[in-house]
Amino acid sequence: MDIVVENLSKSFGSQKAIDSLSFQVKRGEILGFLGPNGAGKTTTMKIISCFLFPDAGNVQVGQYSVRKHAARIRQHIGYLPEHNPLYDEMNVIDFLHFIARIHNIPRYKITARILDMLRLCGLEKEKYKNIRELSKGYKQRVGLAQALIHDPEVVLLDEPTTGLDPNQIVEIREMIRMIGREKTIIFSSHLLTQVEATCNRVLIIHKGKIAADGTSAELRRTYTEKLLRLVVEGGNTKAVFDLLAGIPDVDDVEITEENSFRIQAGRNAPVEKDIFQLCEANGWYIKELVPIEERLEDIFRQVTQSS
């Protein structure tokens, strides 16, 4: 099922949580949803999951609209809310059984589904425990199990890896990638490296609007300047620095160590040629001239601070 979000707006009092937000997610796509705190990620997810009603705009999940077919959409969506609310007084099996029945799973399939979920989420040893007694990581797994028990076509995970240890994070990431082959997944997280490793596409929202959208490679191409590491020999560091800073296309130069520089320039500027000519004219020789890969964190900071 595809998700189409069209001009979605939602305010809480006078504060606009999301402002005319539009995007699409296709089946088989894992969308990483990024944004600083209060950007509108959770509100968007709550609207897609039919918990909140939008002020304006619409969300289409498959052929169903959140405005008209909320009951249908809820059948097809698996949602893990941000703080992972669970019934603490129930034990794991009873809780999953309750959720399975609420989802109208035929009785004869319920046991098999619960066993599948216990296996998939690594809860076999904890199945008889009360949810209250579980550690945060295991509670998170129960949250994932309840979101996936009815084999939904659309999965919304709001910060599913908070509070997990690095091993658990990797396990859950692998799980998301595995289930993401056939489903539509929207996955929000503060851990940018994780989004980069898990998602096919990244959507950065800021103040309720889209700040960046694309694969992480595309974002790098669009949103970052060219970064180069240059090591020259045969010249005085200060003199080299002054001349490098004088090249018109160079936006910024930084001395990283003796004879070593970090140069920032426009993505399409022919700055390498200028550097080469400068070195040749002054009799310096280039020991290293390599592009530095920009990290998603830098792009995130760039797009959420600039606007």
Binding site: S49, Y79, P81, P85, I99, I102, Q146
Partner: peptide, 14 residues
């Protein structure tokens, strides 16, 4: 308070 209202109302429960 516990957020389970959100859990229930995003399931097929009116």
């Amino acid at each position: 308070k516990n957020g389970t209202l959100e859990l229930l109302l995003t399931k097929p429960v009116t």
